[in-house]
Amino acid sequence: MEAIWLYQFRLIVIGDSTVGKSCLIRRFTEGRFAQVSDPTVGVDFFSRLVEIEPGKRIKLQIWDTAGQERFRSITRAYYRNSVGGLLLFDITNRRSFQNVHDWLEEARSHVQPHSIVFLLVGHKCDLEAQRQVSRQEAEKLAGAYGMRYVETSARDAINVEHAFTELTRDIFALVRSGDITIQEGWEGVKSGFVPNVVHSSEEVTKSDRRCLC
């Protein structure tokens, strides 16, 4: 029997409060947009399978973290066991963009001895009229940190699949090349070469329903 997923990657989503972390994750994992959502208190957990190449599936475990300063000491513990991260800011909120650097520092100082592959995400790109951060500027910052930059909208479902899939592909390439290795006692990457049952909680999306044989 073929494995349901090749690898399992654990991701963390960080950024200032109200930039839309939970909405982005819900759009990706549940395919819907919540008009209003509770502020995240502590950490939430989500999961989904993605197909990065025909027949090659990766199981993503996604930690959704609270953005407010008070929760830093709680969310810190989640960096170490994450292989990838989405660092969100809100393109209509300049402050959230200015804090990107602090978020990276926060992550870097708590991820040792591992490292996290980050993707910079400019969220709420449907609100073009209220934009306070230009695409060029964000791309420049991402470039300086060696990250990719993607603009997304959970409301209009723009680039949501793309953002998660690109990040997953990048991590997959690093795993393939041996730059990232599976390690005992580290939850960032796990191998999935065991027959698994597809559970409802990790249902595949429509595009993934093709026959695997």
């Binding site: 300049r94 402050r95 073009e128 009229a129 209220q130 934009r131 306070q132 951060v133 230009s134 500027e137």
Partner: peptide
């Protein structure tokens, strides 16, 4: 205020 100040500083032209 946050909107006005930020728009000025960012030098972004495509604000409302």
């Amino acid at each position: 205020k946050a909107q006005t100040v930020n728009c000025n500083r960012s030098g972004v032209t495509n604000v409302s």
